[in-house]
């Protein structure tokens, strides 16, 4: 019987009183059945080497209880996949061969008590994969999205993540940049309010030479919202010439918020450049005054800023209809603030 899983582990632990070294994913109220269909052992073995952001406990659980869907993009081909019909626990395994291109869009909406997704990617040299995950569930229940990728020479893994619904939300993403000149680009936008929580763990393992990573997280915390962001850029020995950066912007628009941020840069290599920047706070009086002088009142100015904060992430999505749906959902969410 599954009860609690330890997830989103910080790669380098810190002060215990902050309670950010990991978090608990409580699955004790749910029932799970093992799938009848088994995945070919060759495929399973290949993807066992892909570490995910939420960690081993969850990965083992998903491997046991989720029915796996395997997608291969053959050399030089391009595929676009749209997924919306999700069961309770889902696992997708994507293999992109040399010079292949893959875009996966997962749109998760509706009224669910538990919705869990695991997505793993193996990218061969010179390939590209982009995962777009949009979650607009009703503000109840538990949601998790656990992503992992192994990225070979000259390949790029992109992750665009928008989280607007659910009540207890957990997201993890790990990119192992084991190929020279491989890249990881991650953009996340969220709104959390009224008992909603979001726990994030992103990690770029920069293993090979001249790798690049960029992690951007931008979101809005309304009254009663809670967010924990862990972001790690890990320059391993041998990653010379690599560059990594992470930025976080949090706009607070209500009181009783809990806002935790732990942006790590771990560095075992001399010839690298890593940086992190964060801004956390409400709209400054100067901005509000300026907006007011242009005829925009305070509530409208706050709604505009909140809208812009999340839409920054959504702008990385090519599907215009999906962007329009996200925009509508953002407006609905910030309207009530």
């Amino acid at each position: 019987m599954v009860k609690e899983l330890k997830v989103n582990l910080l790669p380098a632990k810190t002060f215990r009183y902050l309670k950010v070294n990991d978090t608990k994913l409580d699955l004790s109220g749910f029932e799970f059945n093992k799938p009848e269909k088994r995945t070919a052992s060759k495929i399973k073995k290949a993807f066992d080497n892909v570490s995910t952001g939420m960690g081993k406990d969850l990965d083992t659980f998903v491997s046991e209880y989720a029915e796996k869907k395997f997608v291969r993009v053959t050399s030089g081909k391009e595929r676009k996949i749209y997924i919306s019909n999700l069961s309770q626990i889902n696992q997708y395994l994507f293999m992109v061969e040399t010079e292949g291109k893959l875009t996966v869009t997962i749109e998760n909406s509706g009224d669910k008590d538990l919705s869990g997704i695991s997505a793993k990617f193996i990218l061969a040299p010179n390939s590209k994969a982009k995962l777009i995950a949009v979650q607009t569930l009703k503000r109840k229940g538990t949601y998790f999205l656990d992503v992992g990728s192994n990225v070979a020479d000259n390949s790029v893994f992109e992750f665009v993540n928008v989280v607007l619904g659910g009540e207890k939300n957990y997201v993890g993403c790990n990119a192992s940049l084991s190929g020279e000149k491989s890249s990881f680009v991650c953009d996340t936008g969220y709104i959390c309010k009224e008992k909603q929580s979001l726990d994030i763990n992103y990690r770029a393992d920069q293993i090979a030479k001249k790798t690049q990573s960029r992690i951007n997280v931008s979101g809005v915390l309304g009254k009663g919202g809670s967010k924990t962001f862990r972001g790690t850029i890990d320059f391993k020995v041998g990653s010379s010439g690599s560059v990594g950066g992470e930025t976080e912007d949090v706009l607070t628009i209500g009181d009783e918020v809990i806002n935790k941020s732990v942006p790590l840069i771990l560095c075992g290599e001399e010839d690298v450049e890593g940086q992190h920047g964060a801004t956390i706070g409400s709209l400054s009086d100067e901005i509000l005054y300026y907006m007011n002088s242009r005829g925009i009142d305070k509530p409208t100015a706050i709604r505009m800023a909140a809208h812009a904060s999340v839409m920054r992430t959504a702008s990385g999505i090519d599907d215009k209809k999906l962007v329009a749906r996200i925009e509508k959902e953002i407006d609905k969410t910030v309207q009530s603030e």
Partner: peptide, 27 residues
């Protein structure tokens, strides 16, 4: 390249009316 330099900052903010900035660089 035989040495290590890690930065492990953490922030826990419980009010909407605060202004927090953080930056780190390794090179």
């Amino acid at each position: 390249s035989i040495s290590r330099a890690d930065t492990i900052p953490a922030m826990d903010i419980r009010t909407d009316k605060a202004d927090v900035g953080h930056e780190a660089r390794i090179g």
